[in-house]
C-alpha cells in the first residue's frame, strides 16, 4: 500500500481522493452502484476512452494536440467492418483498421510538424474531412458486421472467466505498457523533454520533428484500438460513432493533470481522470439523472481544472 501511495504522486493522490469520494457517494445513493457487475461494466465501458486518452496524453506531453480522434473513431471502423465482411478475416480487418489509423496520424503529424501548421487547426480540419468521408462512404447509415465472428464479438463484449471484460484487460495492458514507456525509456523521457522545453531538447540533439510525428502516430494508433472495441460493442461501423469523443477525452486528460502546455502530466493521472468521469457518468445514469448533464459536468470540470492549473503556475512564477 505504501508503494502505491508513493507511486501516486501528490497531485495524483488528490485526484484519487476525489475518485474515492465520488465512489462512496454513489455507493450510498444507488444500491446497484457498488456491485461487481456494475463495476465490471464501468471498467469495460471506460476502456474505450482510456485507450484513446493514453494516446492523447502522449501527444499532449510532446506538446501537440489532436482533436480529430472522434471522427477517426468512426472512420477507421469502416475498413475494419468492410474488410471483415468482404474477406471474412478478423485479423485482416484489424490490421487494415490500424494501418488507416497510423496513416491518419502520419498525415496530421506531417502537416503540423513538417509544414508548421498549428496542430489544432490541422486536426480541426481533419475532424471535418474524416467525418465527411465517413458520411460519404456510408451514405449516413451504419454498416453492420455481417461476419458475426465470435472472436470479434468477444473483444468488446466478452468477459474473462465470465467476470472481467476483455476490453478492460486490453485497456489495462496498454496503460501499463505506456506508463512504463513514458517513465522508463529514453524515448518516453525525450517526449517529455520536447514538450517541456523544446529549446533545451534541441540543444540536447533530439530529432524533435520525428519525436513529435511518432506521438501523432501513437495517438491515432491507440484511438484506432478504441475504435475496434467500440465497433465490437455496437456491432457495426457507425457514421455517428465518436461524436464529441475528443471533448470527453480532453476533459478527462486535463482533469488528470496533463497540461495543455506540454511536458507536464502522467498517464497515471490521465487514467484517474478517465476513471472519475466514467464513474460520474455511470453514477448519474444509475440515479436516472439526465445523461446530458455529463456534458455540463465535463465542461465545468475543464474550466476548473485548467483555471486551477493556470493559477498554480502564475503563483509559482
Amino acid at each position: 500500500m505504501n508503494n502505491i501511495l508513493r507511486y501516486l504522486r501528490k497531485g495524483e493522490l488528490a485526484l484519487f481522493v476525489i475518485f474515492l469520494i465520488v465512489f462512496v457517494v454513489f455507493s450510498f445513493s444507488s444500491e446497484y452502484f457498488f456491485t461487481l457487475r456494475n463495476i465490471m461494466n464501468v471498467s469495460g465501458q471506460m476502456s474505450i476512452i482510456l485507450i484513446a486518452a493514453i494516446g492523447f496524453s502522449v501527444l499532449l506531453i510532446a506538446g501537440e494536440v489532436d482533436i480529430s480522434i472522434g471522427s477517426l473513431l468512426a472512420f477507421v471502423s469502416i475498413p475494419l467492418i468492410e474488410t471483415m465482411n468482404i474477406t471474412g478475416s478478423v485479423p485482416l480487418g484489424i490490421i487494415l483498421c490500424l494501418v488507416f489509423g497510423i496513416l491518419i496520424g502520419l498525415i496530421n503529424g506531417f502537416f503540423s510538424v513538417y509544414l508548421g501548421v498549428s496542430s489544432l487547426i490541422v486536426t480541426l480540419g481533419m475532424l471535418f474531412i474524416l467525418r465527411g468521408a465517413v458520411y460519404l462512404y456510408t451514405g449516413q447509415r451504419a454498416i453492420p458486421d455481417e461476419l458475426m465472428s465470435d472472436f470479434f464479438f468477444y473483444i468488446g463484449n466478452g468477459k474473462f472467466m465470465g467476470t472481467i471484460p476483455y476490453a478492460a484487460i486490453i485497456g489495462l495492458v496498454i496503460l501499463l505498457v505506456f506508463i512504463f514507456v513514458m517513465r522508463n525509456t529514453s524515448y518516453g523521457r525525450k517526449l517529455y523533454a520536447v514538450g517541456g522545453n523544446q529549446e533545451v531538447a534541441r540543444l540536447a540533439g533530439y530529432n524533435i520533428k520525428l519525436l513529435k510525428l511518432s506521438a501523432f502516430v501513437i495517438c491515432s494508433f491507440l484511438s484506432s484500438i478504441s475504435a475496434i472495441i467500440l465497433a465490437s460493442r455496437i456491432g457495426s461501423a457507425n457514421h455517428v460513432a465518436g461524436d464529441l469523443f475528443e471533448f470527453q477525452v480532453v476533459a478527462a486528460v486535463v482533469l488528470g493533470g496533463v497540461s495543455l502546455a506540454g511536458g507536464i502530466g502522467s498517464l497515471t493521472g490521465a487514467a484517474i481522470g478517465v476513471l472519475i468521469l466514467s464513474v460520474i457518468s455511470n453514477g448519474l445514469g444509475l440515479l436516472n439523472i439526465d445523461t446530458q448533464w455529463q456534458l455540463v459536468v465535463n465542461g465545468v470540470i475543464i474550466i476548473i481544472a485548467v483555471g486551477f492549473d493556470e493559477l498554480k503556475r502564475n503563483r509559482s512564477l
Binding site: L244, F247, A251, Q292, L295, V296, G299, I302, I303, V306
Partner: peptide
C-alpha cells in the same frame, strides 16, 4: 479551452 468547455456546457444544458 474556455470556449470548448462552454460548448460542452451549452450542448448539455
Amino acid at each position: 479551452i474556455a470556449t470548448l468547455a462552454m460548448m460542452l456546457i451549452l450542448q448539455g444544458s
